[in-house]
Design a protein around this nucleic acid. Structure first.
Lengths: 104, 104
DNA sequence: TCGAAATATCGAGTTTACTCGATTTATCGA
DNA sequence: TCGATAAATCGAGTAAACTCGATATTTCGA
């Protein structure tokens, strides 16, 4: 089972991106080759969870942040064997940026 | 002395708008006549602080939320006698919306 | 089937945000 | 100058977020 679903809630998204580290994880995923070890980013799949530990936080904390981003619909998670790959959900992000103006 | 200054910090703005009530206050200011007692919105000045207490929170809490919005640069405050009027800072809001994409 | 590796979840401690009532500060009008 | 009104600030209690280490779960390969 892969491809987790969106929540598509502006409030949830805003709370998710209010945390600087979560924003940074999101930015890293824009250009994985520039921010992760080479070979760990798979085209169309994303970056496996462990790679994000390069931010300096513990494994459990990173996992929690990734879960928050996923619940907000900003990333999708896909299991591939024993690894779980995270990638940006560009549709949700674009829609959020487009509609945010109406929420403020 | 009126016209308080911007902070223009994306992180500060995101934390400010992460709170649903603060977003609502901002939305109310889009169309004051539709959301406040008639006559309390002054063109070019905004709405005086006390009017926001209609959200149901205490005076001190409302004041705190307005201060947070102001620190983030999302609203400006102008004293007029014993009243302080708040209005949207459309420049900052527009610039934030335009640049947010680069932060995520 | 078993051990190892990757990730999620749990439980607890710390910090930050939220909220309130009470008080203080600022300004007005008499 | 004084009392009244508006708004900010203070202090404290509660709730939420953050972080960690430890443990549980899932999956792989031998």
């Amino acid at each position: 089972m892969g491809e987790t679903g969106d929540v598509e809630d502006v409030s949830e998204i805003l709370k998710a991106i209010a945390h600087p580290m979560r924003r940074e994880l999101l930015v890293w995923l824009k250009d994985p080759d520039a921010h992760f070890e080479p070979g760990h980013a798979i085209e169309g799949l994303g970056v496996c969870a462990g790679q994000f530990e390069r931010c300096g936080l513990s494994q459990s904390t990173v996992s929690s942040h990734l879960a928050t981003l996923q619940r907000a619909g900003l990333v999708t998670a896909t299991r591939r064997g024993q690894w779980i790959y995270y990638q940006r959900n560009e549709e949700t992000i674009a829609r959020f940026l487009k509609n945010l103006g109406h929420a403020l």
